[in-house]
Nucleic acid binder design. Structure first.
Ligand SMILES: [Zn+2]
Ligand SMILES: [Zn+2]
Ligand SMILES: [Zn+2]
Ligand SMILES: [Zn+2]
Lengths: 182, 182
DNA sequence: CTCTGGTCGGTTATATTATAACATTGTCTG
DNA sequence: CAGACAATGTTATAATATAACCGACCAGAG
């Protein structure tokens, strides 16, 4: 009869992503939290994307593999992943990216307290930095104002290195504007 | 019959704010733009508030003095004011504040390209900084990544100097958490 | 084992923030 | 006035996020 409405494919991602997901699962286990199937799927979908993903985009994609998903489904997963430091929310885009730190190392502890993001307006790619000088300049400025920092949002919009080396209307997101004959 | 639906009181704000509004009006005139009644009202409402104001809060307050105001009314005014550099949008709060620079000097030119904001979680007050070192650290980091900066959002959440000198649950927003004895 | 308390997710409805699209009115200029 | 453009009115809707309540499930205590 197989009437399971909540069927969830087991390992639908590229091997490289599955490795990251396995790491994330272990990381959660170490912290006595659980990277459940839904959370793992959502994280995989985020990692799979080359650009930050909005919650409702995510919901659409999630539905392909998990029927009956609704906004709370995805927002709960996002809350969890952000709490664990596995993803970041990009405020300017109302969208989510995987933590760059997690992608590169074993991620011993929650990251992201001082991350900065470079958001490319042309291709949408978002790079995570962790620049010491920015963090220090910021702490100093806050200290001078007598302000106790708890969290910071540092997001820089502009044009990334890759896009800068291309002509304005090359193979990126913006196809809409017809090339002026001028 | 006086059937004007769009009546707008002329100068409903404190004198100190009216002075700022007059300045802003002159500033716009110099730039060949117009601080119309609605725009002036919206700016006044923002300046009047001690904390950033959301668009719909603003709309409610605007309706007291300008009947028939609708979301586009306030969003258009906000877009204009932000374009002129008279207000800033705080991303983390989806809310708007007057430009601190405008409040202090004659504001020769659009400001805010490099502003930073300290947002107090307890009282909601938001202070605008313009710290040179932060800006430089940021430019350098971006340059090293080959990234061309166009705009930056730098918002720091924490506890402001005033609130730090008070006990946790003094006369501010958060009453809920009982003080731990530990 | 069963009870129990907590976590997780399903489901429905709604809140909050922002914009699209088109009509109308106002302002300036010649 | 006519024409052009800016500003606003008006209606509807898009996009993002949360509330509230329920039942399934699981882990540990007794
Ligand atoms: Zn990170
Ligand atoms: Zn790019
Ligand atoms: Zn400013
Ligand atoms: Zn405070």
């Amino acid at each position: 009869m197989e009437e399971h409405v909540t069927e969830t494919a087991p390992h639908p991602f590229d091997p490289a992503i599955e490795i990251l997901l396995d790491r994330a699962e272990q990381f959660c286990a170490d912290r006595r939290t659980r990277l459940t199937d839904i959370r793992r799927l959502v994280l995989g979908l985020i990692l799979q994307s080359s650009t930050p993903v909005g919650a409702y985009d995510l919901l659409d994609r999630l539905r392909d593999q998990h029927r009956g998903a609704a906004p709370p489904t995805v927002y709960r997963a996002l809350d969890f992943l952000a709490d664990q430091g596995l993803i970041h929310r990009i405020e300017r885009l109302a969208a989510f990216v995987g933590c760059g730190h997690m992608l590169e190392c074993d991620h011993g502890g929650h990251c992201g307290h001082r991350a900065q993001f470079l958001i490319c307006k042309r291709c949408g790619a978002t790079q995570e930095l962790e620049d010491r000088r920015i963090g220090e300049a910021l702490s100093d400025a806050a200290a001078r104002a007598g302000f106790a920092v708890e969290q910071s949002t540092i997001e820089i919009e502009g044009i990334c290195a890759a896009c800068r080396t291309m002509p304005e209307d090359a193979g990126s997101k913006l196809r809409a504007v017809a090339p002026r004959v001028g």
